[in-house]
Write a protein that binds this DNA or RNA. Structure first.
Length: 283
DNA sequence: CGATTATCCTGTGCGC
DNA sequence: TGCGCACAGGATAATC
C-alpha cells in the first residue's frame, strides 16, 4: 500500500510522537516479521532513545541513541499505529514497542509481507566492510535516489535510452526509490505521457515535464497525508485517513470521465499490475 | 540484458 | 447465503 507520501506521513508522525522518548520494551510476536536476522537481536534496542525517524523511498529508518538503525518496510498491508499502552491490540499485531510515558507503537500487518530489521546486523562480523553506501545502510544500497531528492538530469539519465515502459522504470526502486503503482500512474497523467511509453521514446521536454510532475504529485500527496483507498488499509500513525485519493486523476478511475478532457479513463494490464491513463491527455 | 511469472500472505468483493 | 476466484498499495528470485 504505502508509497512515498504515505511512508513520509508515517515518518513525520513517528518523529512527532516518539523522537526523544525511551524505548522500555519490545515484543515481537509475528513469525515472519523479522526475517533477516534472529528476532531476539531487536532486544538490544531496549533502553535506547529514538533519536529520529528518517526515510529513503518506502523504507523507514529509525535511529537510536546506541547508534542502531531499525529499518521498517510496510510493503502491501503494514501499518505503524500509536496507541496508549494496554489498549486492545488490533488483529495481526506482530510487534509492539513500549515507550516511556505509557505509549505503544504497534506494527500491524495482515499479509505479513512487511518486515523489520536492524541495519548492519551480520551473522558473522565483517570488520573491514563499510556498512554504509551513499549514506544508507548496506541493505538499502541497491536503492536509487529518493524520488523527492532526485534531480531532473538524474531522472532523465535513468529513463533515456531504456526500452522498458515508463511506468516500469518509475516503479523500479533501483532507479528511483519511493514510487509505486498509484503515484506512477498519477505522475504519468500530469506529465501527459502514457505509462506504456518506452523510456527511450521520451523527448527532452517530456523528461522535464516528468521530473516536474514527479515532484509536484508527491508533494501534493504528502500535503494531503497520502491516499487511503476503499479498503482503508492505509492510515497514518494516529489512525487518520489521507485525502489524496480525492485528487486522483486516473488511478482507480477506469470508465470514468477524465477531469481534464472528458475522455474515458482506460485500464490496461502491464505485467501483473494495472495501469490507468487518459488516452487523450496522455500520449 | 531485459521482460514476464511466480512467490510470499490475508482480506475483500464479485459473479454465479 | 455460500462458494470459488480474481485482485490488492511491494519486492525479489527464477525463468525464458
Amino acid at each position: 500500500l504505502p508509497e512515498l507520501p504515505e511512508v513520509e506521513t508515517v515518518r513525520r508522525g513517528l518523529d512527532h510522537l516518539y523522537a526523544g522518548r525511551t524505548l522500555r520494551a519490545l515484543e515481537i510476536s509475528g513469525a515472519r516479521t523479522v526475517r533477516r536476522h534472529p528476532p531476539e537481536h531487536l532486544q538490544r534496542l531496549a533502553g535506547s532513545v529514538l533519536v529520529g525517524a528518517f526515510r529513503h523511498g518506502k523504507y523507514l529508518l529509525l535511529h537510536w541513541s546506541g547508534g542502531e538503525i531499525l529499518v521498517v518496510h510496510l510493503r502491501m498491508s503494514g501499518q505503524l499505529l500509536a496507541a496508549p499502552a494496554g489498549s486492545p491490540r488490533p488483529p495481526h499485531t506482530h510487534a509492539v514497542f513500549s515507550f516511556a510515558g505509557q505509549r505503544e507503537l504497534r506494527f500491524v500487518d495482515p499479509r505479513t509481507f512487511g518486515e523489520l530489521f536492524l541495519a548492519g546486523v551480520q551473522w558473522t562480523p565483517t570488520p573491514a566492510s563499510p556498512s554504509v553506501s551513499r549514506g544508507l545502510p548496506a541493505e538499502l544500497a541497491h536503492l536509487g535516489p529518493d524520488a523527492l531528492r532526485v534531480g531532473p538530469s538524474e531522472l532523465a539519465a535513468a529513463i533515456a535510452g531504456r526500452r522498458a515502459p515508463l511506468k516500469a522504470l518509475l516503479t523500479d526502486q533501483r532507479l528511483v526509490a519511493g514510487v509505486g503503482n498509484i503515484y506512477a500512474d498519477e505522475v504519468c497523467f500530469w506529465a501527459g505521457l502514457r505509462p506504456q511509453r518506452p523510456g527511450g521514446s521520451l523527448r527532452p521536454w517530456d523528461l522535464r515535464r516528468l521530473a516536474a510532475s514527479l515532484r509536484s504529485v508527491l508533494e501534493a500527496a504528502i500535503l494531503a497525508r497520502g491516499s487511503t483507498l476503499g479498503d482503508e488499509r492505509y492510515r497514518d500513525i494516529e489512525g487518520a485517513a489521507g485525502t489524496y485519493q480525492f485528487e486522483h486523476k486516473v488511478y482507480g478511475r477506469a470508465g470514468e470521465a477524465c477531469t481534464k478532457c472528458g475522455q474515458t479513463v482506460q485500464k490496461i494490464k502491464m505485467g501483473a499490475k494495472s495501469a490507468y491513463f487518459c488516452p487523450k491527455c496522455q500520449r
